[in-house]
Design a protein around this nucleic acid. Structure first.
Lengths: 185, 185
DNA sequence: GCGTCGATGTATCGGGCCGATACATCTTGA
DNA sequence: TCAAGATGTATCGGCCCGATACATCGACGC
């Protein structure tokens, strides 16, 4: 579905507003700072998203008229919004393994249950391994036809993804350790 | 401009057809195999692109009626198409430094002049360094507010990009060495 | 005081990408 | 002989995002 992308955006916005009410401009700054090199959201996505969240009653507008007459529109999470956020954090499906979504889910891990965290990390890893498999197979099929530049590109691409898999392995091990320690009290 | 993306697609298609005539389905397979983990093109982009290239006379259709009546449409580069390809390979501007374009340009480096190769590699590097700068600055500003998961995400993101910069440094050094060896004959 | 520059702030539009889909043929193997 | 999956051509609609417009604010120099 194309609604997968909508859900990520929704999660990102609701998750950000969970901490503290924000207006559009700062929401974008915070979100992009939070995600760093992984993702960036544009106004063209954020403002329409805020509008639909408003219509659905998940957030409310506030016009704090400061002493200076400057008009800022601050958005605040409603009770329904918090519920929806919990739902999004819990029901992380296969869509959360993808490049565009994974970073957002990860960025809100502190609000996510340990079980779901593990599911997302393992799903992401299997998604990457699947992709590695495909690319390696395609490479084996066409290696003789490729020049040294293309091979170098392929090599670097594969290495980058392998590196992310190793990173995920470490994270998964850490999660498992923490979960075991918690269980033998 | 939004035409930047068009140019990359054009380059990818013309570059692929330069080797050998292809039909849509195999063009896509070859291209995606060529780019590996870096990019993938969809039919929704490729077929419209082929149509405009056809209209502009840069490629021509061929209907090789095989013994079996199976209809395949093979596209072949024209003289104008080859000219245009050379133009695209040579006039690589700042757009070529971006994520979506760099891999495609790199994949056709064997058809690119040494001088242009160096320009693209250095441009890509400075683009990444610029981005690192921004993210590091934002991180320094907000570090205290971030939880350990987000910090780990940031750390991994930065390391990935730093790794790509080191890769570019090696490639640039190799290019320079080759270019120097060529000059003292 | 005054000009100006960059950051802050809200908002929209259109070009273009791509997932999903439809449909047809060929090959493979059970 | 039948089904499944690869090969093959093609389009459509939803949605993303760069570009843009417009306005205010703080700081700085002069």
């Amino acid at each position: 579905m194309a609604t997968d992308q909508r859900r990520v955006l929704e999660l990102a916005v609701l998750g950000s507003l969970h901490e503290t009410p924000l207006h559009g401009y700062e929401l974008r700054k915070r979100l992009n700072a939070l995600l760093g090199m992984f993702r960036a959201f544009s106004y063209g996505s954020l403002y329409p998203c805020l509008k639909t969240l408003l219509e659905r009653g998940l957030i409310v507008e506030e016009h704090p008229q400061a002493v200076t007459g400057r008009s800022k529109i601050v958005y605040k999470l409603t009770a329904e919004g918090k519920e929806r956020l919990q739902e999004l954090l819990t029901q992380a499906g296969p869509a959360a393994w993808e490049d565009e979504s994974f970073g957002v889910h990860f960025a809100f891990f502190r609000h996510t249950e340990a079980e779901v965290r593990l599911r997302i990390l393992e799903g992401r890893r299997s998604r990457l391994e699947e992709r590695l498999e495909n690319v390696r197979a395609a490479l084996a099929r066409t290696r003789e036809r490729l020049d040294s530049y293309t091979l170098e590109l392929q090599r670097h691409g594969l290495e980058s993804v392998e590196r992310e898999v190793r990173w995920l392995n470490e994270l998964i091990a850490t999660e498992r350790r923490a979960s075991n320690e918690a269980s033998d009290e």
